[in-house]
Simulated assay, not measured.
Amino acid sequence: MKRQATATTENVTWRVVEPEDLSESFEEGRNAFRAVNPYSAQKPFIRIEALWTAEPYDSPDSRLLLELDEAAPLELNRTFAFDEPIDTGGRRGIGVWICGDGRGETINIRLRSDLWIGAAMADHFVKVDFTGWRYFSFYESQNGEMEHGDWPRTELEYRVYDDVKNFYASYTNAVNYDRIHYLDILTSGKDQYDLRMKPIVVLPHREQVLVNPTVTINGQSVTFMTELKSGTYLECSAEGECAVFDVKGGVIDTPAIAGEIPVVQPGDNELMISSRGASPYVKRATVTLRLIGEGVV
């Protein structure tokens, strides 16, 4: 039996056992995670996808999307309707600073465009498991991924005919970045939270290269001797057979590995992703670990 679920960071996504949505980068120790393996000890199948990234928040090519007062408490579950649709000028990256309260709620920054039927929306999730100011960079929308554990898809609970707009929006039409009509700041919880947010900006997206990406599990590391560019992905079997694929699924590299494929132990495991070299942009990746077996009680 195969089982795959998600533990996510905005800049690193681990698909392992328990759903948890975070938004992080390779820096400041934000590339390390914990995951639970319900199966016996085994070497996993590993998949690493290099994501697109965005220019820095203070880039001269940034454009204001939503003005916010960073000194004022953030008003959650609010829709900001623009007087005129926002044209991002081809900018697809999003940059935002959030001052967290460490209470573990999930924030969703949702962009929406009106269509003739339904709507188009792009979700961007942040897990507030931190305190103080932290920067987040987005490119891909996240509502096309598997369901988030603390963000149930209530819009799929079709009720009456006039609910058709939200119902069909769940099928994720692409947001028209030339005509953004609304921005929602939503939260998964119903408590009172103490959050701050600086103005949200849109940024030019940029290609990144992950040089010799390394996956570490419980202190044991394996390094893949390749360069992963945005839009490409690496797959490696438990036996160490590796290939890098382009966006169309064509093989473009068969890299060697340094080290052994780490063993995922039953129960809690410490996971980390890293790569060589500095980057002027936030490094971003999606990492999938696939485990096989019967559940261990």
Score class of each variant (00 low, 15 high):
residue 30 R to M: 00
residue 5 A to Y: 04
residue 113 S to V: 09
residue 202 V to P: 00
residue 242 C to Q: 02
residue 134 R to I: 04
residue 171 Y to A: 12
residue 16 V to A: 14
residue 25 S to C: 05
residue 98 I to S: 09
residue 254 T to V: 08
residue 12 V to E: 01
residue 124 H to L: 08
residue 198 K to L: 01
residue 90 G to W: 08
residue 213 P to I: 00
residue 20 E to L: 15
residue 14 W to I: 01
residue 148 H to I: 03
residue 149 G to Y: 11
residue 215 V to A: 13
residue 140 E to G: 07
residue 31 N to I: 04
residue 46 I to E: 00
residue 272 M to D: 09
residue 183 L to F: 09
residue 275 S to N: 12
residue 166 N to W: 13
residue 124 H to E: 01
residue 31 N to R: 08
residue 135 Y to T: 03
residue 57 Y to S: 09
residue 11 N to D: 13
residue 138 F to Q: 03
residue 101 D to V: 08
residue 160 V to M: 08
residue 62 S to R: 13
residue 54 A to R: 05
residue 123 D to A: 14
residue 203 L to N: 07
residue 91 R to F: 10
residue 85 P to A: 06
residue 254 T to M: 09
residue 238 A to R: 00
residue 228 L to F: 04
residue 158 Y to M: 11
residue 262 P to D: 12
residue 79 T to S: 06
residue 93 G to D: 05
residue 261 I to N: 07
residue 262 P to Y: 08
residue 143 N to Q: 03
residue 22 L to A: 14
residue 97 W to D: 11
residue 196 R to E: 09
residue 251 V to P: 01
residue 237 S to W: 01
residue 244 V to F: 12
residue 76 L to N: 02
residue 139 Y to V: 15
residue 71 A to T: 13
residue 72 A to W: 02
residue 66 L to E: 01
residue 125 F to S: 02
residue 260 E to V: 13
residue 136 F to G: 01
residue 42 Q to T: 01
residue 184 D to S: 05
residue 187 T to F: 01
residue 27 E to D: 15
residue 93 G to S: 04
residue 23 S to K: 07
residue 163 D to Y: 13
residue 102 G to C: 13
residue 215 V to K: 07
residue 207 E to P: 00
residue 158 Y to E: 07
residue 79 T to G: 09
residue 12 V to A: 03
residue 79 T to C: 06
residue 66 L to H: 06
residue 270 E to A: 15
residue 44 P to T: 07
residue 158 Y to C: 06
residue 179 R to Q: 11
residue 250 G to S: 11
residue 156 L to C: 04
residue 57 Y to R: 05
residue 4 Q to E: 10
residue 51 L to A: 15
residue 235 E to W: 04
residue 140 E to D: 12
residue 55 E to L: 07
residue 293 G to V: 05
residue 168 Y to Q: 06
residue 190 K to F: 15
residue 220 Q to V: 15
residue 291 L to P: 02
residue 79 T to E: 02
residue 80 F to H: 11
residue 90 G to N: 04
residue 286 T to D: 12
residue 208 Q to V: 05
residue 4 Q to V: 05
residue 167 F to C: 01
residue 102 G to L: 14
residue 14 W to T: 00
residue 79 T to K: 09
residue 60 P to K: 12
residue 247 V to H: 09
residue 263 V to Y: 05
residue 14 W to C: 06
residue 160 V to S: 13
residue 247 V to P: 00
residue 222 V to P: 04
residue 123 D to F: 08
residue 142 Q to Y: 02
residue 208 Q to T: 06
residue 112 R to G: 12
residue 183 L to H: 02
residue 244 V to A: 14
